[in-house]
Design a protein around this nucleic acid. Sequence first.
DNA 1: GGTAGACCTGGACGC
DNA 2: GCGTCCAGGTCTACC
Length: 298
Amino acid sequence: MDLSLTAPSPFSLESVVRSHGWIRLAPFAEDEDRAGFCSIMELGSGRVVGFRVSEEDDGVRVKSDVNLDADEAAELAERVTWMLGLEQDFSAFYARCKNEPKLAHVEAAAQGRLLRSPTLFEDFVKTILTTNTAWSGTIRMTEALVEAYGALLDGTPPGGAGHARAFPSSAMIAQTTEQQLRDVGKLGYRAPYILELAQRIESGDLEIESSRTSTEPTPELRKRLLAIKGIGGYASASLLMLLGRYNYLPVDSWARKMVSQEWYDGQPVGADDVEAAFADWGEWKGLVYWFWDWEQVI
DNA sequence: GGTAGACCTGGACGC
DNA sequence: GCGTCCAGGTCTACC
């Protein structure tokens, strides 16, 4: 089954794939040509499908080895559209970047879109798994969750994918226990956070997927994110960026290091210094920080 | 409101 | 091989 999705101009699938580290987290996998990607998702019908996304003239092509009915195909198209941010318009961002040499590359490279997971639950869990750990730890914990709780693929893994399972649903996680998450996934103290997130969603106490289309002011949305256990300042800012809101900076150790090297001659800086460095960029400050041409990365 | 300490794991390092 | 230390955000208790 093939789907063609139209992308706004400028667009670069490779720029989306390489926008941040999500491509290295299961069930994402790079395609052989490293310009596209493969993944696995569980549809509302319960079917678990593998698919490959590659770039074509006016957008992207989505290929799957299985035949989907009309509803399933529409859902796959809708989710891939969200994952690639095909609904987003960055013309105002590019206009503001024109006079900043450190951002001169962004429009030509079609940067701005950040690779998203098919569901916000997946993005929330993965974001929690990035906190207070090395990147290798995030990869390990994510793979462990997918292997232990992900729904098994209907068919063969798409080319390039080493996984045969989708990311676990909130329903699957909600059925497990904190101890199992600690033992199986080595999630440590994050286990109760992720279990509570899944159980609150399943009980109807928490609804997160509607945040994708919410029009509520960003500070209000941020408050709701911060009320979720395990999501603090860094994680909420990261999630807001995935939701297309760039007013807050995901300040972590890397951000402090980059700002220190860029403007403070390597001297230690705090979160306030990072905020001050991008204060003039308003609603775009998150993207400016993310795509800034840093002096050096060590 | 600000701050200190605990949380948990893997990796680096010294012995 | 073993023990110790450190890095990485968030939460909670305390002031």
